[in-house]
Amino acid sequence: MSQHLIDDVDYRILQQLIQDSTLSHKEIGQQVHMTGQAVGARIRRMRELEIIEGYTVRWNPGKIGQNVHAFVTVFLASNAAHPVFLAFAKEDRRVEEIHKVSGEGCYWMRVRATSQEELSTFLDELLGYGNYKISLVLSQIK
């Protein structure tokens, strides 16, 4: 498979979608000097190539009470703990992201909670699988 699956126009379309996925094909076309129909065809192709995997929304967790934001590095106690830990993490609503990592720790998680107490409860549950290191988010820069 070629390393260059998209050209400059595709890349510009992709950048427009990354900035605002609600833009119409016509609006994107005005920015990249194409018809909306041509933009739609290029977007369909990028979806078929799995360059575009889906669409998302930016949101403000604080507006719905999720004021505590933390990054947690997880150190599992044993190899047997991985499957049960992953089942726990995938199902828990407080876990926003989980990544298997190399280097320090086994997994990296982004966790959101409504309070310090809720975060503390989560961390107590996490001790059933291994240990952790936590960093609380003070503010988001980008």
Rank of each mutant, 00 (worst) to 15 (best):
M46R: 08
R47A: 09
E48C: 02
E48F: 00
E48W: 00
L49C: 05
L49Y: 07
L49F: 00
L49E: 09
L49N: 07
L49D: 09
I51M: 06
I51G: 08
E53M: 15
E53F: 03
G54E: 12
G54F: 00
G54A: 01
Y55N: 02
Y55I: 10
T56N: 04
T56K: 06
T56Q: 14
T56D: 04
V57Y: 08
V57M: 01
V57E: 05
V57T: 10
V57L: 00
R58V: 04
R58S: 14
R58N: 13
W59G: 11
N60S: 06
N60I: 10
P61I: 02
P61T: 03
P61K: 03
G62D: 15
G62Q: 07
K63I: 12
K63Y: 15
G65Y: 02
G65F: 05
G65P: 05
N67S: 11
N67M: 05
N67T: 07
N67F: 03
V68C: 01
V68S: 12
V68T: 04
V68P: 09
H69T: 12
H69L: 08
A70P: 03
A70F: 06
F71P: 00
V72Q: 09
V72F: 08
T73D: 12
T73G: 02
T73S: 10
T73Y: 10
T73A: 11
V74G: 15
F75M: 13
F75R: 05
F75Y: 15
F75D: 04
L76F: 06
L76T: 10
A77F: 11
A77T: 12
S78P: 07
S78T: 08
S78E: 04
S78M: 06
